[in-house]
Design a protein around this nucleic acid. Structure first.
Length: 451
RNA sequence: GUGGCUGUAGCUCAAUUGGUUAGAGCAUCGGAUUGUGGUUCCGAGGGUUGGGGGUUCAAGUCCCCUCAGCCACCCCA
């Protein structure tokens, strides 16, 4: 019979232990950070009625949704982000949840687009959102959470780009271009890539603006520098428009609040030119890039959406949140060679030396686990060298070795793989304390030297 | 979805202008070595050259299709 070729779909990937161990660690870190701010976990179905998903996205996002008819003939789709399902969830359960409501959601999403480095058709997002309040405090907190997330994950050099869409829409209102927001945003987004002149030309063509209007918009987008400078220049650039002034005031508060929350000013960049983000954003928007690998794109983006749930309920449910692109970040760490190469989560390999002591090895390993030390017993009484090689290659930091000599003397050997050094420790099944203490000491030492 | 580049063993790469049975290093497994791993030596396995079709006496090499990866557009985590 012919074999079926084992393969995965374009843009979908397997995760081997060496990748999955840090990946799970990142999820755990994200969970801990979210919980420390009071966000609660939720989950929602992978599949939604198609109409739920297509309601608010642009044509572009609609095109990227995996969709099909289920066996009952219903039109369904796989979620392409976690924010739209949240809006549905909030509209459906608002009464039970109470407002404001803070949730986090770590789960895979699917987008049928062309993959690239750090860009997949299936990837995990770590979302956190606060809904039911328009308070600037929630906006500030979002910045603080992003900062805490990235730094807890081990990053030091990253930049959180912050903007408020209201500033631009205020300017557009001032210019009488309020109804051309979307095409103008789209053109503006290309500023860094295609340059000033082409951007202006495209704006004229796509949105029908005059040269003078394009000039005003570009002046806004090109406003750059440290936060104070930008904030000081914005009122004049936006022509004293009231709406823009409110947006600038909000941006100022977010900036000051973030600083007060402990976010280093060096990591904050008020970037009036970032116009990206899904169409549903209405206020502040965020993007986070790694200073050492900007090319991989934003690893944590989000913003405020004040009427997303409006599609599903008449209740006013404003929200703000952001999403950490876990798999993109993982790809970045891989490229930057930041991933540890251990492919086992265990700390100790108990070598299987002499068959007659099988139960003693099992008992010893059980004692280690009881003390919180992950331990694996090698399954075969193979040559010791082979077992140690196995331990080293899998990334076990330590091994325990005991044969007839050790057992009869009430001892066992512990070996630190990295240094090849070993020592004898007193041990009996009833009094494992000395062994456990010493192993923990060695593991701590290794942990510290790795940091 | 559109366009460009790429695709040989698990990994990194060879293979005259198309020309015998597609090679090497590393890795894997076994042995030298029945109580101590990253060295050395010996041996073994592993490929319908991503897959399919075509041109040719002859295709890893040329052409078409397809699949996948990377890049650009678009969009985004």
């Amino acid at each position: 019979m012919s074999l079926i070729q084992p393969r995965t779909l374009k843009g979908f990937r397997d995760y081997l232990p060496a990748m999955m161990i840090p990946r799970e660690g990142m999820m755990q870190t994200a969970r801990e950070v979210f919980r420390s701010y009071g966000f609660s976990p939720i989950d929602t179905p992978v599949l939604e009625y198609l109409e739920i998903l297509t309601g608010k996205g642009s044509d572009e996002t609609d095109r990227q949704i995996y969709r099909f008819q289920d066996n009952g003939g219903r039109d369904v789709g796989m979620r392409f982000d976690l924010t739209v399902p949240l809006a549905r969830f909030a509209a459906q359960h608002a009464a039970k949840l109470g407002m404001p409501f803070k949730r986090y959601h770590i789960a895979p999403v699917w987008r049928g687009e062309n993959p690239q480095a750090g860009r997949y058709r299936e990837f995990v997002q770590c979302d956190f959102d606060t809904i039911g309040t328009e308070s600037v405090l929630a906006d500030i907190e979002a910045v603080a959470v992003i900062n805490r997330l990235l730094s807890t994950l081990g990053f030091d050099r990253f930049t959180i780009h912050v903007n408020n869409r209201v500033v631009l829409s205020g300017l557009l209102e001032h210019l009488g271009l309020a109804d051309q927001t979307v095409p103008i945003l789209r053109s503006l987004d290309k500023l860094a890539k295609i340059g000033r002149d082409k951007t202006a030309a495209e704006m004229c063509e796509a949105a029908g603006v005059t040269d003078a209007q394009a000039e005003s918009v570009l002046r806004l987008a090109e406003c750059d520098g440290d936060a104070e400078t930008v904030l000081a220049q914005l009122p004049e650039i936006t022509g004293g428009n009231e709406k823009a002034a409110a947006g600038i005031e909000r941006l100022t508060q977010i900036y000051q609040g973030a600083i007060a929350s402990g976010v280093p000013a060096s990591r904050l960049h008020l970037d009036v030119s970032i116009a990206r983000g899904l169409d549903y954003y209405t206020g502040v928007i965020f993007e986070t890039t790694l200073d050492d690998l900007p090319g991989i794109g934003s690893v944590c983006s989000g913003g405020r959406y004040d009427n997303l749930a409006g599609l599903y309920t008449k209740q006013h449910l404003p929200g703000i949140g952001a999403s950490l692109g876990l798999d993109r970040l993982l790809a970045a760490m891989e490229q930057m060679d930041l991933l540890p190469d251990a492919s086992t989560p265990a700390s100790v390999l108990v070598t299987f030396f002499e068959k007659s002591y099988r139960d003693d090895y099992l008992r010893l390993a059980a004692n280690l686990r009881e003390a919180g030390i992950a331990a694996e017993v090698y399954p075969d009484a193979k040559k010791l060298g082979a077992q140690l090689k196995y331990a080293d290659q899998r990334g076990f930091p330590m091994a325990v070795i005991a044969g007839g000599n050790e057992w009869s003397e009430g001892k066992c050997q512990i070996k630190t793989l990295a240094t090849k050094s070993s020592e004898e420790i007193n041990y009996s099944h009833d009094q494992p304390g000395e062994l456990i203490a010493r192993i923990k000491q060695c593991l701590d030492a290794k942990q510290n030297s790795a940091d």
